[in-house]
Amino acid sequence: MKTMIRNITNILFVALMFALISACGEDGLNADSVIKESQREENDFDRWIIQKYVTPYNIDFKYRMEDIESDRDYNLVPANYTKSVQMAKLVDFLCLQVYDEVTGSKEFIRSYFPKMIHLVGSPAYRNNNTMVLGTAEGGLKITLYNVNAVKVTDVEELNRFYFKTIHHEFAHILHQTIPYTTDFKEITGSSYVKDSWNTTYSSENESLPKGFISPYASSAPDEDFVELISIYVTSSPEVWAEKMKKAGEGLGLVTAKFEIVYNYMLNSWNIDLNKLRELVLRNESKIGNLDLDKL
């Protein structure tokens, strides 16, 4: 009797499943997904990026807002199209071309520069209310913020908000690839203040006498190292000399650290920072001759 009941139950279950499958078929369902990837039409700027970034350097230049590339810890807006074109041309002229010239080929940038430059239109702020000028993630991507506010004719502002950041983040990649000597960390080893750098030093007038080229340089040895590179190559000899004058009793500390930085770049990468700065300043002086809107 139990066996008969079990068989009847199995038959009813199979019949029910068949009925459900048949009902689904009658609804006209098919195997095609209803979720479609968004399509975008390639424009002249996209083709220019392929010609100037992707083909010679294998660098992707992203200017459209993409959730996967954006930091959701911040409230961000997309980069303006016109500003993105201007920034792409400036990065090429003031950075990529300069490193090509100082190293003698495109291979240096192709091998070591991040594979993506990502533009964001708005600024981003840390918890300590300081602005994030740029970030580099694992040597793969540099993100530049506040692009919609860029003033393409203001060299000082370009350096302060964008190109000092690019040199800074690129220098991180270089020292992570070939470490600098531990001697550097010992010069001001007990004076680094971590995240309180912005409350410890309000300006370089306060940080320089303590041996730090900028307030942010006092946060950690790695930041100190790359700040020396980025500030040096974007400062004229006169501006750098003025900073050294401000250093006062901290001059010996800054000089000792910069000597290590200079020798590191020369011996590890065959890059003379004096020559790199010369080329950066030369191209900066030619910005006014560029048509930054025409592709």
Rank of each mutant, 00 (worst) to 15 (best):
P114V: 00
T153A: 04
L273Q: 14
E42R: 06
P179H: 03
V261I: 09
E41A: 04
S33Y: 01
I166L: 03
S196C: 08
I229R: 03
P114K: 11
V226Q: 04
C95M: 05
S38F: 12
N274R: 15
E204K: 13
S218F: 12
A88M: 12
I68T: 12
Y57T: 02
I59D: 05
D73R: 15
R126D: 08
E206V: 06
A15F: 13
Q86L: 01
V132P: 15
V193L: 11
R64P: 03
T3M: 07
N129W: 14
D195M: 11
N75A: 11
H172M: 04
S38P: 04
E101G: 09
E204N: 10
V132Y: 08
V54P: 00
P237Q: 09
E242T: 09
M244N: 12
A79M: 11
Y232S: 12
T182V: 03
P237S: 14
M131D: 04
G28P: 13
L266K: 13
D27I: 08
L251D: 08
G28Q: 11
L290R: 12
L20V: 14
S218C: 06
N30M: 06
F161D: 11
F61P: 12
Y262G: 02
V98N: 06
A247I: 14
G252D: 13
G189K: 11
L133K: 08
T135S: 15
L251K: 10
F184K: 01
K275M: 12
E259G: 00
E223C: 05
Q97Y: 00
A241R: 10
N159G: 07
S33M: 06
A256E: 15
T200H: 10
P78K: 07
N58C: 05
P56M: 15
I173H: 00
I166A: 01
I229M: 14
Y232W: 10
K245P: 00
V147S: 04
F93R: 15
G104R: 07
D154A: 06
D60C: 06
N43R: 03
S105C: 05
Y192Q: 08
H118D: 09
N283S: 13
I109G: 03
E238R: 15
G138W: 06
S33P: 10
L292W: 07
T188Q: 08
L295D: 12
C24D: 03
L140G: 07
F161G: 08
K210D: 15
H167E: 02
I109N: 08
I166G: 05
G121I: 00
L279H: 07
V261D: 00
I271L: 01
M116D: 02
M244P: 09
V261A: 03
M1S: 14
S235F: 02
G134N: 07
I231V: 10
F45N: 06
Y99R: 04
P209T: 09
T55P: 01
